[in-house]
Amino acid sequence: ILGGVDALETKWPWQASVHYAGFHICGGSIVDEYWILSAAHCFDRNKNIKAFDIYVGLVDLKVAGNHTQWFEVNRVIIHPTYGLYHPIGGDIALVQLKTRIVFSDSVLPICIAPPDLTLSNLSCWATGWGYISRQGDTSNKLQEVRLPLIPWQLCQLLYGQTDILPDMLCAGNFRNMKTACEGDSGGPLVCEFDRTWVQIGIVSWGQGCAYPMYPTVFARVSFFSKWIHHHIENTPLPLQPLPALSSTLGAIISVLMTSLAVLSML
Protein backbone atom coordinates (compact mmCIF):
# COMPACT_ATOMS: atom_id res chain seq x y z
CA ILE A 1 0.00 0.00 0.00
CA LEU A 2 1.44 3.40 -0.97
CA GLY A 3 0.41 6.39 1.14
CA GLY A 4 -1.10 4.27 3.89
CA VAL A 5 -0.66 4.04 7.65
CA ASP A 6 -0.18 1.18 10.13
CA ALA A 7 -3.47 -0.55 10.88
CA LEU A 8 -4.57 -1.32 14.43
CA GLU A 9 -5.38 -4.87 15.47
CA THR A 10 -9.11 -5.73 15.16
CA LYS A 11 -9.71 -2.93 12.65
CA TRP A 12 -9.60 -5.26 9.61
CA PRO A 13 -10.40 -8.64 11.17
CA TRP A 14 -11.11 -10.27 7.79
CA GLN A 15 -7.59 -9.63 6.44
CA ALA A 16 -5.55 -12.75 5.62
CA SER A 17 -1.95 -13.25 4.50
CA VAL A 18 -1.18 -15.84 1.83
CA HIS A 19 2.30 -17.29 2.36
CA TYR A 20 4.20 -19.36 -0.21
CA ALA A 21 7.27 -21.32 0.87
CA GLY A 22 7.31 -19.34 4.10
CA PHE A 23 6.98 -15.84 2.63
CA HIS A 24 4.06 -13.44 2.30
CA ILE A 25 3.13 -13.21 -1.37
CA CYS A 26 -0.48 -12.01 -1.39
CA GLY A 27 -3.40 -10.86 0.69
CA GLY A 28 -6.78 -12.44 1.12
CA SER A 29 -10.00 -12.06 3.06
CA ILE A 30 -12.04 -14.34 5.30
CA VAL A 31 -15.46 -14.99 3.79
CA ASP A 32 -16.43 -18.11 5.73
CA GLU A 33 -15.02 -20.31 8.48
CA TYR A 34 -13.38 -22.54 5.85
CA TRP A 35 -12.87 -20.09 2.98
CA ILE A 36 -10.45 -17.30 2.01
CA LEU A 37 -11.07 -15.08 -1.00
CA SER A 38 -7.98 -14.02 -2.95
CA ALA A 39 -6.69 -13.32 -6.46
CA ALA A 40 -6.27 -16.12 -9.01
CA HIS A 41 -2.86 -14.87 -10.12
CA CYS A 42 -1.51 -15.55 -6.61
CA PHE A 43 -2.01 -19.28 -7.25
CA ASP A 44 -1.02 -19.70 -10.90
CA ARG A 45 2.20 -20.89 -12.57
CA ASN A 46 1.75 -24.43 -11.29
CA LYS A 47 2.52 -23.49 -7.72
CA ASN A 48 2.57 -26.40 -5.27
CA ILE A 49 -0.58 -26.23 -3.13
CA LYS A 50 1.29 -27.83 -0.22
CA ALA A 51 3.66 -24.85 -0.04
CA PHE A 52 0.85 -22.39 0.73
CA ASP A 53 -0.04 -21.29 4.24
CA ILE A 54 -2.76 -18.86 5.28
CA TYR A 55 -2.52 -16.61 8.33
CA VAL A 56 -5.39 -14.73 9.94
CA GLY A 57 -5.53 -12.55 13.05
CA LEU A 58 -2.26 -10.94 12.04
CA VAL A 59 -1.14 -7.30 11.83
CA ASP A 60 2.64 -7.77 12.07
CA LEU A 61 4.04 -10.33 9.64
CA LYS A 62 6.92 -11.08 11.99
CA VAL A 63 4.96 -11.34 15.24
CA ALA A 64 2.12 -13.77 15.88
CA GLY A 65 -0.43 -12.21 18.19
CA ASN A 66 -2.85 -13.80 20.67
CA HIS A 67 -5.44 -14.20 17.91
CA THR A 68 -3.16 -15.34 15.07
CA GLN A 69 -4.17 -18.61 13.42
CA TRP A 70 -2.30 -20.59 10.78
CA PHE A 71 -3.85 -22.88 8.18
CA GLU A 72 -2.87 -25.30 5.46
CA VAL A 73 -4.72 -25.18 2.16
CA ASN A 74 -7.08 -27.99 1.21
CA ARG A 75 -8.05 -26.79 -2.27
CA VAL A 76 -7.93 -23.70 -4.48
CA ILE A 77 -10.76 -22.91 -6.89
CA ILE A 78 -9.74 -20.54 -9.69
CA HIS A 79 -12.48 -18.74 -11.63
CA PRO A 80 -12.99 -20.39 -15.05
CA THR A 81 -12.61 -17.04 -16.87
CA TYR A 82 -9.22 -16.28 -15.30
CA GLY A 83 -6.92 -15.10 -18.12
CA LEU A 84 -9.54 -15.95 -20.75
CA TYR A 85 -10.73 -12.52 -21.95
CA HIS A 86 -7.87 -10.49 -20.47
CA PRO A 87 -4.41 -11.52 -19.19
CA ILE A 88 -5.52 -10.81 -15.61
CA GLY A 89 -9.31 -10.93 -16.05
CA GLY A 90 -11.45 -13.13 -13.82
CA ASP A 91 -8.74 -12.69 -11.19
CA ILE A 92 -10.48 -14.39 -8.29
CA ALA A 93 -9.77 -17.53 -6.29
CA LEU A 94 -11.45 -19.31 -3.42
CA VAL A 95 -9.13 -21.07 -1.00
CA GLN A 96 -10.53 -23.82 1.19
CA LEU A 97 -8.66 -24.38 4.43
CA LYS A 98 -7.97 -27.80 5.93
CA THR A 99 -9.42 -26.80 9.27
CA ARG A 100 -11.98 -24.29 10.49
CA ILE A 101 -11.21 -20.69 11.45
CA VAL A 102 -12.14 -19.79 15.02
CA PHE A 103 -13.75 -16.37 14.99
CA SER A 104 -12.96 -13.75 17.60
CA ASP A 105 -12.94 -9.96 17.80
CA SER A 106 -9.71 -10.06 15.74
CA VAL A 107 -10.83 -12.70 13.23
CA LEU A 108 -14.15 -12.19 11.44
CA PRO A 109 -15.64 -12.72 7.98
CA ILE A 110 -16.32 -9.90 5.53
CA CYS A 111 -19.62 -9.63 3.65
CA ILE A 112 -19.58 -10.35 -0.08
CA ALA A 113 -20.99 -7.58 -2.28
CA PRO A 114 -24.32 -8.67 -3.79
CA PRO A 115 -24.71 -8.69 -7.60
CA ASP A 116 -26.93 -5.59 -7.62
CA LEU A 117 -24.71 -3.40 -5.43
CA THR A 118 -24.64 0.29 -6.34
CA LEU A 119 -21.25 1.90 -5.82
CA SER A 120 -21.71 5.56 -5.00
CA ASN A 121 -20.87 7.84 -2.08
CA LEU A 122 -18.87 5.14 -0.37
CA SER A 123 -15.97 5.20 2.05
CA CYS A 124 -13.69 2.42 0.84
CA TRP A 125 -10.39 1.10 2.15
CA ALA A 126 -7.66 -1.18 0.87
CA THR A 127 -5.31 -3.08 3.18
CA GLY A 128 -2.18 -5.18 2.72
CA TRP A 129 1.45 -6.01 3.40
CA GLY A 130 2.68 -5.12 -0.09
CA TYR A 131 5.32 -2.57 -1.09
CA ILE A 132 5.04 0.82 0.59
CA SER A 133 7.14 2.68 -1.99
CA ARG A 134 7.74 2.49 -5.72
CA GLN A 135 11.32 1.42 -4.87
CA GLY A 136 9.99 -1.76 -3.26
CA ASP A 137 10.33 -0.93 0.44
CA THR A 138 8.24 -3.19 2.64
CA SER A 139 6.60 -2.99 6.05
CA ASN A 140 5.80 -5.85 8.38
CA LYS A 141 2.83 -3.89 9.72
CA LEU A 142 -0.49 -4.19 7.90
CA GLN A 143 -1.11 -0.95 5.99
CA GLU A 144 -4.48 0.70 5.38
CA VAL A 145 -5.46 3.41 2.94
CA ARG A 146 -8.71 5.10 2.03
CA LEU A 147 -9.23 4.99 -1.72
CA PRO A 148 -11.83 6.85 -3.74
CA LEU A 149 -13.61 4.78 -6.37
CA ILE A 150 -12.97 5.85 -9.93
CA PRO A 151 -15.86 5.72 -12.40
CA TRP A 152 -15.57 2.68 -14.67
CA GLN A 153 -15.77 4.76 -17.86
CA LEU A 154 -12.99 7.06 -16.63
CA CYS A 155 -10.81 4.05 -15.84
CA GLN A 156 -11.45 2.74 -19.36
CA LEU A 157 -10.30 6.10 -20.73
CA LEU A 158 -7.11 5.97 -18.65
CA TYR A 159 -6.14 2.39 -19.42
CA GLY A 160 -7.78 1.87 -22.78
CA GLN A 161 -11.16 0.44 -23.55
CA THR A 162 -10.07 -3.17 -23.98
CA ASP A 163 -8.09 -3.29 -20.75
CA ILE A 164 -10.88 -2.62 -18.27
CA LEU A 165 -13.58 -5.29 -18.41
CA PRO A 166 -16.97 -5.39 -16.66
CA ASP A 167 -15.55 -7.73 -14.01
CA MET A 168 -13.08 -5.03 -12.90
CA LEU A 169 -13.32 -1.79 -10.94
CA CYS A 170 -10.78 0.94 -10.26
CA ALA A 171 -9.83 2.95 -7.20
CA GLY A 172 -6.98 5.25 -6.27
CA ASN A 173 -6.07 8.72 -5.18
CA PHE A 174 -4.47 10.72 -8.00
CA ARG A 175 -3.41 13.69 -5.91
CA ASN A 176 -1.83 11.94 -2.93
CA MET A 177 -0.38 8.86 -4.66
CA LYS A 178 -2.45 6.49 -2.56
CA THR A 179 -2.78 3.08 -4.11
CA ALA A 180 -2.16 -0.65 -3.77
CA CYS A 181 1.13 -2.22 -4.89
CA GLU A 182 2.92 -5.53 -5.36
CA GLY A 183 2.19 -7.92 -2.51
CA ASP A 184 -1.26 -6.43 -1.90
CA SER A 185 -2.81 -8.63 -4.61
CA GLY A 186 -5.66 -10.76 -3.37
CA GLY A 187 -6.36 -8.37 -0.52
CA PRO A 188 -9.75 -6.75 -0.02
CA LEU A 189 -11.22 -3.39 -0.99
CA VAL A 190 -13.98 -2.88 1.55
CA CYS A 191 -16.63 -0.21 2.03
CA GLU A 192 -18.93 0.59 4.91
CA PHE A 193 -22.67 0.40 4.31
CA ASP A 194 -24.67 1.47 7.33
CA ARG A 195 -22.13 0.06 9.85
CA THR A 196 -21.64 -3.18 7.92
CA TRP A 197 -18.44 -3.73 5.95
CA VAL A 198 -18.75 -5.22 2.48
CA GLN A 199 -15.97 -6.36 0.15
CA ILE A 200 -16.39 -4.85 -3.29
CA GLY A 201 -12.94 -5.53 -4.77
CA ILE A 202 -9.90 -7.80 -4.78
CA VAL A 203 -6.52 -6.15 -5.46
CA SER A 204 -5.59 -7.36 -8.94
CA TRP A 205 -3.30 -5.27 -11.17
CA GLY A 206 -2.20 -1.82 -12.33
CA GLN A 207 0.31 0.06 -14.47
CA GLY A 208 3.04 0.04 -11.85
CA CYS A 209 2.24 1.34 -8.41
CA ALA A 210 2.88 5.03 -8.51
CA TYR A 211 1.94 6.44 -11.89
CA PRO A 212 -0.65 9.02 -10.90
CA MET A 213 -2.78 8.50 -14.00
CA TYR A 214 -3.12 4.77 -13.53
CA PRO A 215 -5.27 3.69 -10.57
CA THR A 216 -5.30 0.21 -9.04
CA VAL A 217 -7.57 -2.27 -10.79
CA PHE A 218 -9.59 -4.65 -8.64
CA ALA A 219 -11.61 -7.75 -9.44
CA ARG A 220 -15.24 -6.62 -9.05
CA VAL A 221 -16.62 -8.86 -6.27
CA SER A 222 -20.30 -8.19 -7.09
CA PHE A 223 -19.66 -9.66 -10.57
CA PHE A 224 -18.55 -12.92 -8.95
CA SER A 225 -20.79 -13.09 -5.88
CA LYS A 226 -23.03 -15.89 -7.22
CA TRP A 227 -19.95 -17.94 -8.11
CA ILE A 228 -18.52 -17.36 -4.62
CA HIS A 229 -21.70 -18.39 -2.81
CA HIS A 230 -22.21 -21.39 -5.12
CA HIS A 231 -18.81 -22.85 -4.30
CA ILE A 232 -18.97 -22.14 -0.58
CA GLU A 233 -22.36 -23.80 -0.34
CA ASN A 234 -21.67 -26.78 -2.60
CA THR A 235 -18.05 -27.76 -2.00
CA PRO A 236 -17.64 -30.61 0.49
CA LEU A 237 -15.83 -29.81 3.71
CA PRO A 238 -12.28 -31.16 3.93
CA LEU A 239 -11.85 -34.65 5.32
CA GLN A 240 -10.88 -34.37 8.95
CA PRO A 241 -7.99 -36.50 10.23
CA LEU A 242 -9.13 -39.46 12.31
CA PRO A 243 -8.52 -39.00 16.03
CA ALA A 244 -5.45 -40.84 17.27
CA LEU A 245 -5.92 -43.75 19.62
CA SER A 246 -5.96 -42.39 23.16
CA SER A 247 -2.84 -43.12 25.17
CA THR A 248 -4.78 -45.11 27.79
CA LEU A 249 -6.56 -47.26 25.20
CA GLY A 250 -3.31 -47.66 23.29
CA ALA A 251 -1.52 -48.81 26.44
CA ILE A 252 -4.25 -51.39 27.24
CA ILE A 253 -4.11 -52.80 23.70
CA SER A 254 -0.33 -52.89 23.85
CA VAL A 255 -0.38 -54.87 27.15
CA LEU A 256 -2.98 -57.28 25.75
CA MET A 257 -0.95 -57.88 22.57
CA THR A 258 2.22 -58.50 24.61
CA SER A 259 0.37 -60.90 26.92
CA LEU A 260 -1.02 -62.84 23.94
CA ALA A 261 2.43 -63.03 22.40
CA VAL A 262 3.92 -64.35 25.68
CA LEU A 263 1.07 -66.88 26.09
CA SER A 264 1.51 -68.13 22.52
CA MET A 265 5.17 -68.86 23.25
CA LEU A 266 4.36 -71.01 26.34
Binding site: V31, W197, V198
Partner: peptide, 27 residues
Protein backbone atom coordinates in the same frame (compact mmCIF):
# COMPACT_ATOMS: atom_id res chain seq x y z
CA UNK B 1 -16.02 -19.75 25.67
CA UNK B 2 -12.38 -19.93 24.63
CA UNK B 3 -11.86 -16.17 24.60
CA UNK B 4 -9.36 -14.97 27.13
CA UNK B 5 -10.67 -11.49 27.67
CA UNK B 6 -12.26 -9.71 30.58
CA UNK B 7 -15.93 -10.62 30.83
CA UNK B 8 -16.97 -7.15 29.68
CA UNK B 9 -15.27 -7.74 26.32
CA UNK B 10 -16.62 -11.22 25.68
CA UNK B 11 -18.70 -11.71 22.60
CA UNK B 12 -20.47 -14.93 21.72
CA UNK B 13 -19.73 -16.08 18.22
CA UNK B 14 -21.85 -18.79 16.71
CA UNK B 15 -20.76 -20.64 13.57
CA UNK B 16 -23.02 -18.27 11.63
CA UNK B 17 -21.30 -15.15 12.90
CA UNK B 18 -22.49 -11.99 11.15
CA UNK B 19 -20.20 -10.81 8.39
CA UNK B 20 -18.74 -7.33 8.14
CA UNK B 21 -19.30 -6.46 11.80
CA UNK B 22 -16.29 -5.12 13.59
CA UNK B 23 -16.05 -5.81 17.29
CA UNK B 24 -17.34 -2.68 19.00
CA UNK B 25 -15.94 -1.97 22.43
CA UNK B 26 -18.18 -0.10 24.85
CA UNK B 27 -16.71 2.82 26.74
Amino acid sequence: TAHRHPASEEVAFSRDVACGQRHVQGK
